[in-house]
Design a protein around this nucleic acid. Structure first.
Lengths: 355, 355
DNA sequence: TTGAAAGCGCTAACAG
DNA sequence: CTGTTAGCGCTTTCAA
C-alpha cells in the first residue's frame, strides 16, 4: 500500500471505487474468475458455489465495472455518435429520439454533436470516432466531403449517412449505409396534390439552393408540374433560407406580382416557410385556402394548430432515426458486414385545411 | 512482435491505428516525450527541435490519440451526461442545446439519456456515471429519490439538478448544484397578468399533480388570486396530463359549468394545454380573447403562430442549459469546489393576443 | 473448474 | 531537457 494518497491532484478525480481485484481478494478467488462471472460468455464455467460467493461480495462492497477500462481492453465504447446540424430544428429531436430508442435496446449510449452546419464542427465530430470515443456514427452534415471521411473509412468505422445518395458519395465497399427521404418524391407529392386541386399557377419557396435538400425539392416540384402539363414559370420559384421570416418575405414578393402572374397555390419547402407565407397572405387580406392555397413540408409538432391547419408532408423522422440506428447496430454487432445499403424512408402527405 | 494477429475476433474491431509508441519509435524519442508534446502542460519542457520532429511524424503517420486509453489513465472521460425525460418535449431541445454549447467550449461531449420519466431508465442513466462513462450529470428526473443518489454522492460525482429545491433534496455539502425556474413565480406572473386585465373568474388547467412542476404552478396561481382579492374556486382548477388533448377535455369540462360559474380566463400550465383549450373554445363558438382569455406557459416555438397568438411565459430553456453546464464544468475543472449552489433562472411574460 | 500473466494506449511520478 | 518506470481496471489467452 502506498504512503499518503496523492489527493492534491488539481483536476478533480472521483474517489476510488472497488475494482475486480478487490472483489477477488475478498471472495478469495482470482480476478479472472470475477471477470468470467460478470461477462459469462466464454466456454469457461465457474462452479455455482464460487459464483454465489463472488456475487455476494460484489453486492456487499458495491462493485460496479469501470466502463473505461472495459473499453480500452475490448476496443468498444458501446457509444454511438449522432452528428446533426441543430437539435433545435424540429426534425431532429424526433430523429435523435428514434436513434436513442434503438441504441438503448443494444445497450449503446448516444453522444449528440450539434454542428450548425459548420465545417470545423462537423470535422471535429467525425474525429471523435477516429479518436475512439464512439464506435460508429450517424451523420447529417452539410459541408463534409468524401475526402474528409477518408481516415474514418480507412479505420473501418461504421457510419450511417442521412441524406440523398449523391449528397456525400462514398465507396460502396466502405462500412456505411444510407438513409434518406427522397425529397424529390416528397415535393412531387405535395405539388402534385396542389395541381390535382386544380391549381395551375403554383409557386414554391425553398431554402438554400446550396443544400441538396433544397435542390431535390425543386426537382420534385418541377417534375410534378410537368406531369400535370404545367409549364414551369421561373418567376414563381423563390429561394429563402428555411426560416419563417424568409417565407414571409418571399411571399410578399410573390404577392407583388401582377395579378395575372400571381400564384394561386404555394408549395413551401418546410413548415416554417409555410407559416411565414401564411402570415404574409393574411396580412394582405387573403383568405386561405380560398384565395391562395399553402402547403408545407415536415409536419412539425404544431402544424395542425396554425389557422387554417397546415397541409404538409410528414417524413416520419423518428422512424428514420430507428432505421439509421438499426443499420448501424447491425454493423457494430457484426450481424452485418456486407457492402453499403440504402434505406429509402416512406413519407405521408398530410392533408389538412390550408390546401 | 507477435505472430499472426488475431483478426478473427467476433466483435468488429477497428483496424489498429498508430500509437504514441509508434510515433516515438519513428521519431527516435521516448513515448513519454510524445505524450508531453501532445499535452504540454507539465513543467517539463521539450526542445524545439524534438518537438518539430515528433509533430512531423505525428502528421505523417496520421497519429490520433486514443481517448479511451487517455480516460483510463487520467480518470476523466471528458463527457457529461444529460438525463431528461424526452428530447421530443419542446423544452428540452433548447435546454440540451444550451448544455452542449457550453460543454463544447470546455471540450466536453454530451451523452443524452431519455428516460420518459421511468424509474428504471433514470437509475440506469445515473449508473452510467457510477460506471465511469461520464464525469458529471445534469439531470431532470421524475422518480429518483435522495437515496437513489447515495452511491453517486459517495463517489463525489458532480451533478446539476434541474428542478425546484424540494424536488430532490440533497445534502448541501454534496458536490451538486441546482438550477430552476421558480414555477410558482412564473404561474404567479401569468395569473397576475390575467387578473390585471380585469378577470375575476380565472381557471387553471395543470398537468400531473404528482409533479412538483404542477404543484408549484398551482401555488403561484393561488397566490396571485389572493393578492388580487379573488377567492379561489376549486371548481376552476382542473388536472390534466400536460397534453393538448387533456387541455381540450378539461376546457370542455369548464365550459359545461353554469354560465355564472364559467371562467372568463384560463391559465394553462403549458402551451400544449393552452392550445387544446383554445381549440375547445373555438369549437364552442367562443371568441378569444373577447369571450375568454387564454394564457399558456413555455413559449414553445410555434406559440406565436396559433390564432390568436398565444400569451405565455418564456423560461429561456437554452439559458438554463447554459447555466447548468457552466456550474457543472466549474466543478469538473476544479474551478469550484464549495458546497451546493442554486441558480434561479429568470423568465419573461410574453404578451400576445390570446389574453 | 480455476488462475497466472500479458497487455490495451496512455499519463505522470521520478530520476537522470 | 529527456527517458524509465509503473500502473489505470479490465479481458482473454494459455496453462494447470
Amino acid at each position: 500500500m502506498g504512503e499518503g494518497d496523492s489527493a492534491e491532484q488539481r483536476p478533480r478525480r472521483r474517489s476510488s471505487r472497488p475494482t475486480q481485484a478487490d472483489v477477488a481478494r475478498i471472495a478469495g478467488v482470482s480476478q479472472t474468475a470475477v471477470s468470467y462471472i460478470l461477462n459469462g460468455k466464454l466456454q469457461t464455467t465457474i462452479s455455482d458455489a464460487t459464483r454465489q460467493r463472488v456475487l455476494a461480495v460484489i453486492d456487499e462492497i458495491g462493485y460496479v465495472p469501470d466502463l473505461t477500462a472495459r473499453s480500452l481492453r475490448s476496443r468498444r465504447t458501446m457509444t454511438i455518435g449522432a452528428i446533426i446540424p441543430d437539435i433545435t430544428n424540429p426534425f431532429f429531436p424526433e430523429f435523435v429520439r428514434g436513434i436513442q430508442d434503438v441504441a438503448q435496446t443494444g445497450s449503446y449510449d448516444v453522444i449528440t454533436y450539434n454542428t450548425d452546419g459548420q465545417r470545423s464542427l462537423e470535422l471535429n465530430a467525425v474525429d471523435a470516432a477516429r479518436r475512439g470515443r464512439v464506435d460508429g456514427l450517424i451523420m447529417s452534415t452539410y459541408q463534409l466531403t468524401t475526402a474528409d471521411l477518408g481516415p474514418t473509412i480507412a479505420q473501418a468505422i461504421p457510419m450511417v449517412i442521412l441524406g440523398e445518395p449523391d449528397d456525400l458519395p462514398l465507396p460502396a465497399d466502405a462500412p456505411f449505409d444510407r438513409v434518406y427521404v427522397p425529397g424529390d418524391d416528397g415535393a412531387h407529392a405535395v405539388t402534385g396534390y396542389l395541381a390535382e386541386q386544380g391549381h395551375r399557377r403554383i409557386a414554391t419557396i425553398v431554402g438554400s439552393q446550396h443544400l441538396a435538400n433544397g435542390v431535390q425539392r425543386v426537382a420534385g416540384y418541377r417534375r410534378a408540374l410537368t406531369e400535370h402539363g404545367i409549364a414551369a414559370d421561373e418567376g414563381l420559384l423563390r429561394w429563402g433560407d428555411w426560416s419563417e421570416s424568409s417565407g414571409y418575405a418571399c411571399m410578399n414578393d410573390l404577392l407583388a406580382l401582377p395579378s395575372a402572374q400571381r400564384p394561386t397555390a404555394v408549395f413551401a419547402a418546410n413548415d416554417l416557410i409555410a407559416v411565414g407565407a401564411m402570415l404574409a397572405c393574411k396580412a394582405a387580406g387573403l383568405k386561405i385556402p380560398e384565395d391562395i392555397a399553402i402547403a408545407g413540408y415536415d409536419n412539425v409538432a404544431l402544424a395542425h394548430l396554425v389557422m387554417p391547419p397546415l397541409t404538409t408532408l410528414d417524413q416520419h423522422p423518428r422512424q428514420i432515426g430507428n432505421a439509421a440506428a438499426r443499420l448501424l447496430l447491425e454493423r457494430l454487432t457484426g450481424d452485418f458486414d456486407g457492402s453499403s445499403r440504402t434505406y429509402r424512408a416512406a413519407f405521408d402527405l398530410v392533408i389538412r385545411e390550408s390546401a
